[in-house]
Amino acid sequence: MLVGLADLFWTVLAKGVASFHFSMLTTVTHGIAGGLQNAILGTFELILLSTAIAAPLGILGGVYVSEFAHTKSAAAVRFLTEVLSGVPSIVIGYFGYLTMVLSFGWGFSALAGGMALAIIMLPYILRTTEVSLEQVPRSQREGAWALGMTRFQAVSRVVWRPAAGGIATGVLTAIAIGMGETAPLLYTAGWSSLNPTWQLTGHQVGYLTYVIWTYIDQPYPEAHALAYSAALLLLGIILIIHLVVRFLVHQSTGSARRHSLASYVRWIRSHASGVSASSAKRASATSTYRIRTR
């Protein structure tokens, strides 16, 4: 396994570096040669769209499962979300083709591709949000409720803060997964050698994984060079995201408690006037007490 992995990285690195030119970043694909600008921008557009769809759904859904749902419905959502993450990505792409591309008449488009990616990313964001929120001690919620906050205020002002690192980790992981996907995009996003426009439907978009898949099968060295460069770029971006994720996880596990207490105090300072004076006073008394005993 180690040998395989090392060889994989070595192959991509050596061939990628040998064939990469910086001009590839600024030119679009012509036939079998040219650059990767259209694919890079297309990948970013697709990721932007899918994150814009999946992140709110996933984070709100995770909040619901962790904070509002009854035990049984929470278990059901959790279980079915995990099952959704097990649906083969090509089936999701095929579903997107039948519905969005054909029935909705969007054609091969950025929106169809973004939606298909969003379905793939959603389970990861939802589950990490839920797990990070569950690690926030219950006393923080109780404290917030005792201050007279609604459940929404408790989540939006107190509880999310210690969980923020975990939630960001989930979103980043989902982005890394989405970037590496090909199968769901084949029949939803299509392929275009032009730079993506901001028209969401009716226009095909290019993306990096497509370049790797198609151009390695061509018998021309220029096409291979494009495929290797695309692989190098993709692997590089994904590795960087994974490193950031590791760093975030490391940070948030170390300082969760300190961080949450700080946010508590900050909330009380900035919002004391909004709640009744006596409860704010009580709360600030508690918080000073807590900080001293820590």
Binding site: P56, L57, G58, I59, L60, G61, G62, V63, Y64, V65, E67, F68, A69, A76, V77, L80, T81, V83, L84, V87, V91, I92, F95, T99, I119, L122, P123, L126, T150, R151, F152, Q153, V155, S156
Partner: peptide
């Protein structure tokens, strides 16, 4: 209170979206 209700409703809808996708697919 209204914001709270809206939020819980939106969160509930979001939480049901994976189930919806699974059923639709």
């Amino acid at each position: 209170k209204i914001a709270n209700r809206l939020f819980v409703a939106a969160a509930g809808l979001s939480a049901s979206s994976p189930i919806l996708f699974l059923l639709l697919i």
